[in-house]
Structures are given as structure tokens and as C-alpha cells.
Measured scan of single mutants.
Amino acid sequence: MQNSHSGVNQLGGVFVNGRPLPDSTRQKIVELAHSGARPCDISRILQVSNGCVSKILGRYYETGSIRPRAIGGSKPRVATPEVVSKIAQYKRECPSIFAWEIRDRLLSEGVCTNDNIPSVSSINRVLRNLASEKQQMGADGMYDKLRMLNGQTGSWGTRPGWYPGTSVPGQPTQDGCQQQEGGGENTNSISSNGEDSDEAQMRLQLKRKLQRNRTSFTQEQIEALEKEFERTHYPDVFARERLAAKIDLPEARIQVWFSNRRAKWRREEKLRNQRRQASNTPSHIPISSSFSTSVYQPIPQPTTPVSSFTSGSMLGRTDTALTNTYSALPPMPSFTMANNLPMQPPVPSQTSSYSCMLPTSPSVNGRSYDTYTPPHMQTHMNSQPMGTSGTTSTGLISPGVSVPVQVPGSEPDMSQYWPRLQ
């Protein structure tokens, strides 16, 4: 039975679970980093996980050691009161100082060594604690504590007292930064006198190289990059290397530039699409467009005044059976039934097929058609009795279509119309 579990990581490298990497692998990681390889490249070359490479390099940059820390136990506290007071002093002298600059000053002034120097995250935590204590304490208590930490007896009751030896409130920041720059020169002199001055200088240079600022491109470089971006948004590694040799930039910087440029292009394309949609959409909808001609068919113009009344309900007709019959029939052209047409008796099958359309009241044959006459024609229609054979009435077949029909004066039988409509 094995005491430890061995495995293979996602890159194909072998590791022992819970145990640190061998010293030979750690040394190779540092050597590759000094030669300029990126952590992701080191991870692929040595088949070590990216997190492990970053952790080893980060500890090497901070402490200069590649040895693993002790497994188990607690780390001794490195942010001692003396170190905290120095950090507060540096922050007062130059409020814009960075944590890694404070760390360098602690090393250069001999406050800490490589073994007990606090990390950048520890210094940031100390600065946050100082800021929170400043908010919790009152103004007087804060000034007393700062005077105690600074070891001075001057008056701290006013704002300019934060910067000793100065009279203009805006000047101390520059003086403090100048003092810090002077301390940086002392850093070089002190570290050069040490035993491991060369190694420390190499480590600091490598650290500065990794902690780079934003790349500033010249106009020629920007023009070359934009020209390549117009050709393709995704250049391959050969195109990037050719462009890197042409404009004297690292291939990694060119790759990052193209990634950022593609993101910018997507944002601009989104804005262009929004403007295009806004320009195509009308600002207001016309009133006429809300009524579609496919839904509402136009009603033909009436030929006679009587045809303006298109349904039985508008003429005072309360018989719903006839109203439904007229509205359900398709529109037909106007025609006239003459008196000489043969009077065919209704076929029983045809009569039964339209039995649902006729009223059940037996008085329908005896009703006159003056009910369908509009009010303004009552006088004219009353002067001509319906009993004469020459009287013409208008029957409504569908809305908007008038059918003048000659009705025999002897017997106005409704059943004569249905064979004609089939």
C-alpha cells in the first residue's frame, strides 16, 4: 500500500499530492522566468500547473527564495509595531506611495530583511487598517496617535501638521516623493554593498519588468496595427511575429492590442446598429396606417339613396333571421326581375335548405315592403301603392349592394327569390 497518492495534472505532468515540487523543477521555473518566458509558457514547457508556477515565482520575487514554506503551523507575524509605524510614516510623507514602493524602502533602510519582509498584500492590509482606524477615531485622537508614531512633539492640530517642515499644504506631496526618490538612490547604494547585491538587483529588475506600465504606442505603430486590423481581426502567430519585427513591439503586446481592438470594434458596431435601427424607425405612426385595407374592405359607393341603408337594423327591421341572411350572402350585381318571367313554384328541397333563413311567422307573405323604405322617402312611396304591378321595390342582398326588384302586385311571395340566388 502506497503512503502517498501520485497523479497526472491537466498538462500531463506527474505530481505527488500534498508534497511540494522538487527543487530542480523550481530552479528551472526561475531560470525560464529570467530568460523572459511568460508564466503560461513555463507552465506548458515544464508541465506544471499555472497556479503552481505563479505561486513559486511570486514567492521568489518577494523573498528571493525558491524553497517551499513549512507545511503546517502558523507563519510568524511580520507586521510588527515597528514595521507598522514605518509604513504609516512613509504614507504620511508621500500619500500616493504604492505598497511595493513601501516594501522596497523597508528593505533599503534595513527595517526588514528578506526573511521577515511583509508581502505587498500585508502592507496593503496595514494601510487599510490605518485608514479604518482613522475613520473610527476622532480628529484629536487621530492626531495624537500619528504624533506618537512619528515621534515628534510638534502641533498636529492642523492639517499642514501632517507634513512636517512644510508650510504650503500643496507642497508636502512633492517633497515626500522627492525624499522617497532619494531613498531609492540609497536603495541602490545599500544593496550594492550587501553580499547578495547582484541577486537582489536582478530580482528587482525582473520584478519591475513584470510590473509594467501601460504600453505607449507611437503613431507609426498605431498606423501599422490599424492597417493589419483592417486586413483581418484575428491575425495568426506568423502575422503577429512579422508585425512585431516590423514595428519593434513584443508579440504578446500585439496580441493584447488586437484583443482590445476587437472589443472596441464590437462596441462601435453595436452603436452603429442602434443608430441604423433608430433612423429606419419613423418618429410617429401615421393615422391612416393604423387601418389596414386588408382588414377593412372598402364599401362601394351607393348608386341610389335607398342603398345607403345596408342592414335591417338601420331600417328599423327587427327580424334577425333576414338580417343574418342578407349579411351572409355574397355580393351580387344589380339585376331586375321582369313581370314576364315565369313564376316557378319553389322546389321543396330548395325551400327546406333555406328554411332556417325565413321567419317562422306566416304573415311574411302579407307584409308590405314599406318597412324598408327610409324616412325621407315615405311620402313618395305612399303616393304609389304597392298593389300595382309596376311598383318597384329595392331588396338588399349584402352591405353596400342594392338590387332593384320588380315585385308582382298580386302576391309578394318571398319564396320566388331563392331559386334565382343559387
Rank of each mutant, 00 (worst) to 15 (best):
E62G: 06
Q10D: 04
L127I: 10
C112R: 07
N124S: 07
S85Y: 09
S132W: 11
N124K: 06
C94F: 10
I97D: 08
D41E: 13
E93R: 10
T63S: 07
A139P: 09
G141H: 08
G58V: 07
S4G: 12
P39G: 14
V8T: 08
E62T: 12
D41P: 00
D115T: 15
L11R: 06
G18P: 03
E133I: 10
M142K: 11
S119A: 04
A131M: 10
E62R: 15
A79K: 01
S119K: 04
V120T: 14
I87R: 00
V126P: 03
G51K: 04
L21T: 06
N129K: 15
V53W: 05
S96W: 08
S132A: 12
S54A: 06
G7N: 13
N124F: 04
V53E: 00
D23K: 05
V111H: 13
F15K: 05
N124Y: 11
L32E: 03
G64R: 04
R44W: 07
R67P: 04
P81E: 09
E109K: 12
T113E: 15
R44T: 05
T63Y: 00
W100M: 06
V126R: 04
I29W: 01
N116Y: 09
A88G: 06
V111Y: 09
F98P: 09
I123V: 15
C40V: 09
C40Y: 03
L46S: 01
D140E: 09
S119P: 02
M142E: 13
Q10S: 11
I66H: 07
A79C: 15
I87T: 08
G73K: 05
D115G: 14
N150S: 12
D41C: 04
P76M: 02
V84A: 05
V8P: 04
G36Y: 04
G138V: 11
E82H: 11
V16N: 11
G18W: 02
R44E: 06
N124D: 02
K55V: 07
V8Y: 06
R19Y: 06
D140I: 12
N17R: 15
E31W: 14
C40Q: 04
G141N: 08
G13H: 02
Q10I: 05
S4D: 10
K28T: 07
Q135R: 12
A99C: 05
R77Y: 04
E82C: 09
K134P: 10
S35C: 15
M148R: 14
G64Y: 05
I87F: 03
F98Y: 13
G138I: 13
P118K: 00
S108I: 12
A99E: 00
Y90P: 02
V48D: 01
P68H: 05
G138Q: 14
H34R: 12
K91I: 05
V8W: 05
H34L: 14
V78M: 02
A79I: 10
V8R: 12
R59V: 07
V16K: 15
R147H: 14
I42F: 01
Q27S: 08
R26V: 03
G7H: 15
A79N: 14
E109P: 05
T25K: 14
E101M: 15
V8S: 04
G58Y: 14
T113Q: 13
R69A: 06
S43M: 01
S54L: 03
G12D: 01
R103L: 04
S119T: 00
S121L: 00
Y143A: 13
K86A: 15
